[in-house]
Design a protein around this nucleic acid. Structure first.
Lengths: 194, 194
DNA sequence: GTCTATATTGTGATAGAC
DNA sequence: GTCTATCACAATATAGAC
């Protein structure tokens, strides 16, 4: 399997298309032909770059997770305060949702997880683990610094925050809401504020 | 379109199968042949009961929503206290998730909403509206009775609670967690407790 | 790398016999 | 109500020419 660092420019465009289609229609909702049309080549040419659909999606999720980690680092660079970092975190989901109500790649794949290839499922689990760990670290700092009320463990708060944001994308879509995950994140942070 | 009240026993079994398949694989993840095998008839016989897939799914969601409302009424009958009612609400999601990690029919369809037939999308929106309204009423009572901290509006709390529970099913699946939405609901209620 | 052509299987849906 | 047979099409994937 190719690493997303060594993708040709066409392979990169294919992954771009796959990411977008995954966010809008899910694993079972797009085909190699959709990809082919999106990037302007024929179906078999897509197979030349990614032999199987599961290959393509694994690489797509790996790149998605990698970029997410870059964003987390970016937040750490911009905000010294843990509360500010956690607040900014919701902005990552908001930015995705604001782009034509796209949802998190792993939120979509999490819903579809039964019937997904094992290697895809493993990447989804990895994405959530990374996020839960990052969030838990943030909530630990807030708790230790007494910046939030001691109402739950850092792990439980991390889980709640992530679930609320992922759920906000799904519910927002279901209700055709223009309002995105940010407001849900803001409410959550308000409920645990001192 | 048939109403779910006047379904023959075979039609009922077909809707049972559709509900289960929707919760596990989503709209794009099951076929009429899957249904046929689940209930032990052939594919064209399924079409005899539900002419199109969108017909079948609309009726399935309508019945699902109806049963959910029955459960809400049941909760109101068992609990006089609004806090208890809201806590019980999470149990509805927990029961679904406990059955082989199934997720909410409308959580799944909400994620897939792009590309779904319009009449299906309308039923999904209706499910969420009903739930948000019921929850908002509960949080209004809690707020008025000063049973919770005044940290957000009742509408915002309702939205947060529903999103957290829907998200918990998706994230739980993605991480192969045995722990379900109940614990997320409990954490949320703890964060707004006095 | 890209293409045409094709294999194979699955899909939603219909016709018409029983 | 159920079946066999079939349609028209879309899916993932491969072979092999250019």
């Amino acid at each position: 399997m190719k690493h997303f660092y060594e993708l040709s420019s066409m392979a990169e465009r294919i992954v771009d298309a796959a990411e977008s289609l995954l966010q809008q229609h899910g694993y079972n909702g797009f085909s190699y032909d959709n990809i082919a049309q999106a990037v302007g080549i024929k179906k078999p040419s897509v197979h030349h770059h990614f032999a199987t659909k599961s290959d393509l999606v694994v690489v797509t999720v790996q790149r998605y997770t990698h970029r997410f980690r870059e964003q987390l680092l970016h937040i750490e660079g911009r905000h010294a305060d843990a509360i500010d970092r956690l607040h900014s975190y919701a902005g990552l989901f908001q930015a995705t949702y604001a782009a034509n109500r796209r949802i998190c790649v792993c939120g979509m794949l999490g819903a579809e997880i039964q019937g997904l290839p094992d290697d895809v499922a493993a990447e989804v689990a990895r994405f959530f683990s990374i996020n839960l760990e990052w969030l838990a670290d943030g909530f630990k700092i807030c708790t230790a610094a007494k910046q939030i009320r001691a109402c739950a463990t850092a792990d439980a708060l991390a889980q709640n925050y992530l679930c609320a944001l992922e759920g906000a994308m799904v519910v927002g879509r279901g209700t055709s809401s223009i309002q995105g995950p940010q407001v849900v994140g803001t409410t959550f942070m308000a409920t645990i504020a001192l």
